[in-house]
Each structure stands twice: as structure tokens, then as C-alpha cells.
Design a protein around this nucleic acid. Sequence first.
DNA 1: GATGAATGAGGTTTCATTCAT
DNA 2: TATGAATGAAACCTCATTCAT
Lengths: 235, 235, 235, 235
Amino acid sequence: MATVTRKQREILDRQQQVLKVARQIFRQRGYLGLNMDRVAHEMNVAKGTIYQHYKNKEEIILALAVETLDKRTAMFEQACLFRGKPRERMAAIGCAAELFVIRFPDHFELEKVLSCSSIIEKTSENMQLAKTAAELKCINLVAGIVRDAVASGDLELPSEVSPDQVVFGLWSSTYGGYSIMGCDDTLRQMGIDNGFKMVRDINNRLLDGFGWRPLSTEFDYDETYERAQREIFAG
Amino acid sequence: MATVTRKQREILDRQQQVLKVARQIFRQRGYLGLNMDRVAHEMNVAKGTIYQHYKNKEEIILALAVETLDKRTAMFEQACLFRGKPRERMAAIGCAAELFVIRFPDHFELEKVLSCSSIIEKTSENMQLAKTAAELKCINLVAGIVRDAVASGDLELPSEVSPDQVVFGLWSSTYGGYSIMGCDDTLRQMGIDNGFKMVRDINNRLLDGFGWRPLSTEFDYDETYERAQREIFAG
Amino acid sequence: MATVTRKQREILDRQQQVLKVARQIFRQRGYLGLNMDRVAHEMNVAKGTIYQHYKNKEEIILALAVETLDKRTAMFEQACLFRGKPRERMAAIGCAAELFVIRFPDHFELEKVLSCSSIIEKTSENMQLAKTAAELKCINLVAGIVRDAVASGDLELPSEVSPDQVVFGLWSSTYGGYSIMGCDDTLRQMGIDNGFKMVRDINNRLLDGFGWRPLSTEFDYDETYERAQREIFAG
Amino acid sequence: MATVTRKQREILDRQQQVLKVARQIFRQRGYLGLNMDRVAHEMNVAKGTIYQHYKNKEEIILALAVETLDKRTAMFEQACLFRGKPRERMAAIGCAAELFVIRFPDHFELEKVLSCSSIIEKTSENMQLAKTAAELKCINLVAGIVRDAVASGDLELPSEVSPDQVVFGLWSSTYGGYSIMGCDDTLRQMGIDNGFKMVRDINNRLLDGFGWRPLSTEFDYDETYERAQREIFAG
DNA sequence: GATGAATGAGGTTTCATTCAT
DNA sequence: TATGAATGAAACCTCATTCAT
């Protein structure tokens, strides 16, 4: 029994080792620079070994994305535990999103690559479902906070606006903002030096626009942000 | 002399024909499906001929992006001519952005591909500068409207907020929103059916958050949008 | 002692199970589709286990051929028991050959594959001898009937023609005929719809050419064929 | 104009050089030993070059078969010009078939390989049609002689026997005979040393069986065979 | 300027076989 | 004996780019 468990662990180790090495290569050389030869070589392992764990290159890419998605979900869950009003919890979510981007700068690149349909087609349905589920979980965590705000009376949404639309707004401006930040030039040309602060401010303005109390003009969310960082993501 | 001019025009024609064919292939088959053999074949021209016009494949990709960027700039310039308050002109810009995405759905794909660092490295500096310039021009058109709003008193920005930050906000949420729309699934899971309307609403909330008058709660920007469509982009 | 015997039987069972599964795969997917992974998977057994029974893949192929060869010999032996004149017994052999091809359509494919020299080289000498012996046994059964015909006076061979040459003739035209039948197109182009009947007729003409009495012009061998089918191979 | 012609010839030369090298490899190492790497290496040419002339490995195999088929047709056409009675012309055809097998011993191997459906599937339809046409042409040449014999009264076929069936018989026994000859062992075990003579004799017996005059018991077809060899295939 | 055959590095994938457990 | 992960050679195929004509 113990033997089986050990073997299983070894296999899982290998799988994660593949991901680790693959992520490193992806970070340094991008999608086109990530190839099975390189992964095998960096692992000091035969090429065939990789194929015993992942059906093809695309499956590795997708596994990489799912892995980070899971990391993000965990971070968002922690942020949800933050003590404070709903909008403060949302600020904590923003803090988590920021940290996630810093820790896993390759995740956006992965998403870009995966959005090329030809890639996802080659992956197993199981892994695809895993990815969708991971995404949905994140979205729902955020939507939960919006609903809390509505329930507590901090946020009054007109009947034609659903909580999900607020989530979509935050998602868009955050995703868009970080994407633009990825292209160093554009930002520099706009005379912006701290992209993260910028995204935070934009999101605050957006929530102000929805009338989510307390408005950022009445409350210091920068302090909230710093507290979240200290209390939750100190490690 | 006239002969030379004719020849020059012929060369330009060829260059644009390359782009036309390349764009078509890119739209239908994506980056990996775009290869020189295919371009040459569809143009009824030898492969070598293409290399007389573009140094390499990457240069074509970049030229494609610059081409659409120029198209967008032209559309934004038209939007700037829209009669109305600054915020109405901004709505016209939104209308232009929307139309652009519809007319050139491949532009986002191109941007994605280009953001793979390994690609832009292989292009000539000239073309890179052309791209940056085209982007900047667009940004400045939008920033001009923000400054108009400040000048006219419709928008009061605190000293620590620059007009460019407003532009960054709009840019982020629009870019992010359209990107998310590209992945059909995510949106559907969020129960959103009309992504374009959603992006418009989000942007309105954002500008409301900045206090840009008249607020969307006091003014019907949907009507403005429709007028812009009618008056400017009827063709 | 009994234990050992049981174990031995288990091993034999395994060996035959390998053949059974391998044959099925070969029939469905051909030589290139037959690989050890597939065999192991279909047997719910580890790949290594198969190597405990067969030295290599080629050995399996050869064993498959020997197995069918033995089946054919058994059928030919039954045909030899058919009551009637030698030439009628030969017709029964033809009936057996026909049935064999129908029951084991993969045998010809196996022969083809084996004739690729590179394959048989990798097999053990023992197995090669087993195959030769199985073939020889069949040939001798047929030759026996020819000798019977000579002995009984039905067939008068000139001194320079040996009974084996008659066998060779039948063998050739049967083997050739069935081979050509395998390629559907060729036959259709020749306007032949019932290949089996054709081969029977050709063989009859051949034996007529040798003067083997009663000639097919004087005797209804089709009826003999039907009787053979009924009496011997009814199951 | 001359330039184009030269270039075209060069390309054709290359194509035939590929076939020449491929045939050599196939002869020495069989199907599994024939691979693009080897062909390229033996030609002192890059791998990609081969792919410029042949879409894939299978296409080369098929081209090889068509090439020899054309050679055989040419030889059969020469045999048809042989002076003599129809049955003598048929003997000349037999002579041609024999020579063909000697000159192109790999043709049968090619046919075997091609009969694996998975191979022909990968080839272009054009090439497949070329092969079918080449086969048909040969068959028709032989059928023509049979019809001549019927027309001249040398051969009386019962109404239920078509000339094509005679062709099928000859084809079968020849194809089968040569195939069996390919496996050295079997023949030796049957005590047959001259396989070619054997096939000739068998075919003669078969035609005797059809009553094709003059019968081989009344006429020396061995002499005809030798004359054919001298007169037609001296080179 | 146009051509397109040749290049050859680069990539993905397969699979028979071994061997430590 | 059974296992099955690891091996690694070997195969096929692609394609951006060059260069002689």
C-alpha cells in the first residue's frame, strides 16, 4: 500500500516537475521557445518521458494555466476572509489580483496563447473543463462580494444592472490594465509609472460610478490595500 | 520619370496586396496557419517575390497591425468631429472603437501575437516606430477630448489625476472588455449576452466615477451613441 | 507438482491470450497499428508482462502465422478424409482452402508482413522452423493426394513431371488468385464478381491440363465442392 | 524557352533520381528500411528537397510501383509484336513477365506493401489513377491475345467462360508462382530448382486445360520461349 | 525584379525495449 | 512474475529563408 502511494507521489512529482520546467522556459522564451526537446533537456530526462505524462505540448500549456488559475483562486479565497465592509473586501481582492500578476507574470501570456483556438482544440476535454471551472470559481467569489454589498445596502443597483455586470467591469479594467502594462512602451508614453496604483484607482472610480459606498472620495482605500497586504499576504 | 512613378506605384500595390492576402489567411487560419508558401500561392506569385517587399514574416505581421492601427486612427479622427459636449464626443469615440473591432476582428489577434516578444525583435526599428506612433496618435486624440472636458469645466480632476489617467482607464476597460468578449465561454457563463453594450455601460460608470458631466444618470448616452453611428459611420 | 502444472497452464493461457488479442488488433488495424502498448492495454496487463512470453513483437507476428497455419493443416487433414476419387479429395482440399481464407482473412496479411525480410530475422530459429514444418505438412497432404491419383491410374504424369509440380501449380494459382482477390479493384475491372468460384474453375482447368481424370468436362466438381462443404465443414 | 525546358528537365531528373535511390534502398532494406532521411542522405540532398518532389513517403512507394508497371507494359507491348500464333504470342508475354520479375525483383514487394490500405490512403488520387490505368493496360494487352485466339479458332471457350477469366487464370498462377518463388525455402523444400520453368509449365498446362491449340503436348513452347527471348528481349 | 528549388534546422510524435521495484 | 515509467532512437513533416537563373 505504501509502495503504491510512493510511486503515485513520484509520478505526481514528475508531472509537477514538468510544469515547473515548462513554466520557466515559457517565461524566458515564450510559446514558440517552449518545445518538448527543451523541456526534456532541462529536466535531464528523455523526450518520451514527457509524453508519458502529457499527451502533447498543448496539454502542458493548459495545465500550466490551470495551475496558476488554482493559485489565483486560493488567493482570492483568502482575500474574501478580509475583515471589513464589502467594498473593503473587494479592495482585498484587488490586492490579491495584483499579487497574482506579480507572482505569475506568465499567466497572461498563457491566456493569450490559449485563446488561439487551434491550441485548445488539441487538449483533452477534462483539462478544458478544469480550466473553465477554475475560472468560474474566481468569478463567483467576486460576485459574492458584490451581492453582499447589495444585501448590506452599500450598493444600490438599478434593476437592469446585475451583480455580474459589476464583476465584468472590474474584470475588464483589471485585465485590460494589466495587459497594457505588459507592453512597457505604451504606458511610458502615457507618462504612467505605477501601473498597479493606476489600475486600483480606475477600479475605485468605476465602483464610485456604480455608487458603491463608501465612495473612494470618502474613504482611504489605499490604507485598506496596505492592510490587506499586511494581514493576508504577508508571506 | 513617369515610368519610375508607375513602377513605384506597382511596388506599393504589391505590398498592399501582400497585406491583403496575409490578413485574409491570418483571419481564417491564425498565426500558425499564416506561412509564406500560402501567401505566395494565394497571390499567384513566387515566394521569393514576397521577400522583395518584406524582410521577413514578422515584418508582415507588424505591417498588418500598423495598417489597422491607421484605420482606427482615421475612425477616431472622424469621431472627434462629432458635434456635442466633450463627453458626447467621447461616446462617439466609443462608437468608433466598437465599429473598429467589428470591422477588423483580427486586430486583437495580431496584438496578441505581437506581444510575444520573440516576434517584434525580428522587425525593423522603423516599422516598430511606426506602430508606436500610430498608437500614440490614437491615445492623444482621446486625451484631447479629456482635456477639452477639463477646459470646458465639465470635468474637474484633482491635481494628482492627469487626463492621461482617464484615458488609461477607458483604454483598459475597453481593451479588457473586448478581450473577454473574445472568449465566448466566459461571457456566457456570466450571463452576459451583449458585450458591446456592457462595455459602453462600464465606461459610462467609469466616467461618472470621475465626475465627468453630464453624468450618465442625467443624460441618455445611448441616444448619443446611436446618433454618432448615424452621423459619422453611416457607410 | 500439480501446482507447477497449473502454473504452466496459466502461462500457456497467457500466451494464447496474447495471440488472440494481437490477432484482433492486427485484423482491425494492420501491422502498423499493432503495437505492444495496445496489446497490453487490451489485455489489461502491463507491457513488460508480454515480454515474459514473447521475446519481441516479431515473434508474436510469427506465432500468429504458425497458429493459423496449424488451423489450415487441420482443415486440410479433414479434407483428406473426404470419400471419393483422388480428384474429388483434391476438390475438398480446395474447399478447405477457401474456407480457411474466409475464416482467417488476416493470414494473407500476415504472410505479406513476414515476407518483409527484416521481420523474420528478428525471430528465434525455433519458431521459424515451426513455421516451415507447418507449411510442409500442408504441402505433403496435398502431394499425397496427387500420388494417390498417380497410383490409382487417374493421373499419368510424364517422367519429367513430379507430383510436387502439380502441387506447386495448384498452390500458385490459388495463392495468386486469392491475392488478386484481396485488391478489390483489379477484379472488378476484370468484370469478375465471384473470385472463389473463379479460382476453383481455374484449378480445374489446370488439373484438366495435367490430364487428371475424371476431367472437369466429364464430371461435376461443383457438386463435389458442395458435398465437401456439407459433409466436412458443416460446423 | 530553352531555359524553362532545361529547368523542367532538371526537376524531372531529380524526381527520377529520388525514385532511383529509393528503389535501391527499398531493394536492400525493405519498406521499413526506406525512410526520407536515408533517401536524402544517399542523394546528398536535404530532407526538405525530397518533400518538394513527393508529398510523403507513400507517394514515393506508389511512384516506384507505377514506374515499374510502365516498364512492364512496355515489355508486354513488345511481346505482342511477336510473330506467331496467338498462343505463341502468349508465350512471349510469359517471357516478358519472367524478364520483368528478374529485372525488377522489388516490384512484388512494392505491390505487397501497397496492398496495405493504410499506405495507399495517403497518396494523391492522381497517382492512384495512374497505377490503376497502368495495370489495366497490361491486362488488356493479354486479354487481346486471348480474343485473337478465340477469333482465329484456336481457342473455343464455352459461353460461360469469358476471355478475362483466362487472363485471370494466367495472372493468378504467374503472380502466385513468382510470389512463392520469393520465399526461397518453400520451393527448395518442394524440390523445385527452376521456378521460372515451373511457372511456364504450369501456365501451359492451364491453357491446355482450356483447350487452347496447339496444346503444349503437340507443340514445343520452350523453343518459342527461347525465340522470343532472342528476337525481342535480346538487349 | 521575379522565380521556385534547395536548404536544413527545428519540431512533434511513436514505440520497442529495458529495468528497478 | 508482474509492473509500467523511463528510455532514446528513429521517424515524419514544416517552413522561413536563400540564391542561382
